[in-house]
Design a binder for these strands. Structure first.
Lengths: 125, 125
DNA sequence: AGAGACAGTATCTATTTGATACCGAGCACT
DNA sequence: AGTGCTCGGTATCAAATAGATACTGTCTCT
């Protein structure tokens, strides 16, 4: 395999290394992406609002995650030249598309969480 | 951290640290989970078959991922006492449930991959 | 002058991931 | 009897990533 398959001559195959869709999956297979995108479901939020909503994320990692998502065109970053500074993040159309499967994942997690935690306890015993 | 909130007195909230659903999300926010579960969509596979299908995963990481998913009850691991050894992995009901949102994610990735790669190129320029 | 808000950086450490080499049991072949 | 092969992993070490914590710059308000 050579070039990134952005052509549609071949069906995109996320299992193939170097396939574009695999590259994209790597973004979602990120600890924080699901949470950040999910947090922006109801509209634009500022950096600090995101930090409050998503417990446990450090500012460095928040910045990294946001920049990566901005780079991919999932969200926009708008800086207002005020003091104190105001920066708002908002999903793009692409980001709102992503929201659909991401919500599905989150719902699955919330539905089956207790069962999974129980499985772990059995396994570890 | 002491107890994971597996009670259903509170609505599960994946944004909250220490919430069970957050713990579960962390499993999905793993680089390989989506691929491994997706690979098992059509039935049981052996270790080496998984390695072939999922390009780029190393044996160590494959083992880690499979053990974690087994621990969570997403798949089963069956060892046949043969030589050479045969070990088969298969999704549980829980795993097949997970397959639904995971397929949604993969479809999203395959659909929008080229657009995202294009976005990155613009951003990096 | 000093404190505070906000959106981050800088720095250092801990944890995860990855590359690569190797192992053990048994069969098949020479 | 020795050699090589298959399969499903481990072992070991290096590299990349995530996390904890402290700090910065700008302006405004007291």
């Amino acid at each position: 395999m050579e070039t990134i398959a952005s052509s549609s001559a071949f069906p995109p195959d996320a299992f193939a290394k170097d396939c574009a869709s695999r590259v994209v999956l790597d973004r979602i297979g990120d600890r924080w992406t699901v949470l950040v995108v999910g947090a922006l479901a109801d509209g634009r939020l500022r950096f600090s609002e995101l930090r409050t909503r998503i417990e446990g994320i450090t500012p460095k990692v928040m910045t990294q995650t946001l920049r990566a998502l901005e780079r991919d065109g999932v969200l926009t970053r708008t800086v207002y030249a005020e003091v104190p500074p105001r920066v708002e993040y908002e999903l793009t159309d692409l980001g709102r598309d992503l929201l659909v499967p991401i919500d599905a994942i989150r719902h699955w997690a919330e539905q089956h969480a207790s069962r999974i935690v129980a499985n772990r306890e059995v396994y570890d015993r």
